[in-house]
Simulated scan of single mutants.
Amino acid sequence: MSALCDGRVVVVTGAGRGLGRAHALAFAAEGARVVVNDLGVGLDGARDAKSPAETVVAEIRAAGGEAVAHGGDVATAEGAASLVRTALQTYGRLDTLVSNAGFLRDRMLVNLDEDDWDAVIRVHLKGHFLPLKHAAAHWRAEAKAGRTPVARVVHTSSGAGLLGSVGQGNYSAAKAGIVGLTLVAAAELARYGVQVNAVAPAARTRMTERTFAETMAAPATGFDVMAPGNVSPLVVWLGSAASEGVTGRVFEAEGGRITVMEGWRPGPSADKGARRTPVEAGETARELLTAAREPGPVYGA
């Protein structure tokens, strides 16, 4: 064991199943003490009877690690605040926040109800913002007290947020928003010793059963490309002190592949130095598009 996160206290939201569970177990295996958050809801956000967070905590403890469960709703101010308090009251510190909680309510746009829009934006985007806000307030106080932290935040975006995904307008908008939040947080919090990055994972979870229907089955032998645990090593590294100097970046992670995203970089450009007519603007736009790289295809198109 490399003990990459020995002594660190890590909070993982949505850690009862899938990617979040894999992240929590991977951090614990590297020596971290883990706060396992999960509200305990179904794929559409409805409450489950069981506590998946407690199950993951039991797994970590059975393997000799330290963990505590948190069942609050991180898309509320009190739930997010209590999440940070749980880490501080249980372990006396907070070093890393991994935001991963979310669910789906997929519909084509013309069938997408306002409630379905609001619910998905709330859990994904607000559920990233509020834990970040409360963790950042703690780290800022620490820095101002002369105890500058080596703090890390890892957000969970998606290929749907980077390219779009048919039938997932609410989810794609939320995941794109998370990228914007990541970039702003990286810029604002650097002075307090906080690094903020995002990962767009592809893996076998409850949320991706339909998206990856043709590639979901794990092979009988060999490397299981879609296993959630394949994404966790990058998340653990980003959440460790070893990632010093890496902030404001977005990574794709799937199987054994890691890709650094280059975002909305300026491409071909033309400046007339004066106002164009609409026809001239169209002609220039077409010339620039001819020279530009084609965007990636929308998932499901």
Rank of each mutant, 00 (worst) to 15 (best):
A3W: 11
R8C: 01
V12P: 00
G16W: 07
R17C: 03
G20H: 10
A26E: 12
A29N: 06
E30P: 05
A32K: 01
G40S: 07
G40C: 09
G40P: 05
R47W: 11
A53Y: 05
R61W: 00
G64Q: 03
A67D: 04
A69I: 11
H70A: 04
G72V: 11
G72A: 10
D73L: 07
A75E: 04
A75F: 02
T76C: 10
A77T: 10
S82E: 14
A87G: 03
G92K: 13
D95C: 13
S99E: 05
A101E: 04
F103E: 01
R105F: 10
R107A: 14
D115Y: 03
D116A: 11
D116P: 03
L132Y: 02
G146E: 12
V153F: 13
T156C: 04
S157F: 04
L163S: 08
S165P: 00
Y171D: 04
S172P: 01
A173L: 01
A174H: 00
K175I: 01
G177L: 02
I178P: 03
T182G: 09
L189T: 09
A190I: 11
R191N: 06
Q195R: 15
A200V: 11
A203V: 06
A203Q: 10
M207S: 07
T208Q: 08
E209Y: 00
A213F: 12
A217G: 09
G222L: 10
P228M: 00
S240C: 09
A241Y: 04
E244V: 02
E244A: 13
V246Q: 06
R249D: 02
E252V: 08
A253S: 15
G256S: 14
T259S: 14
G263T: 10
R265N: 11
G267W: 12
A274C: 09
P278N: 01
P278C: 05
E280G: 12
E280P: 01
L289N: 03
A292T: 10
A292V: 06
E294S: 15
E294I: 14
P297I: 08
P297K: 13
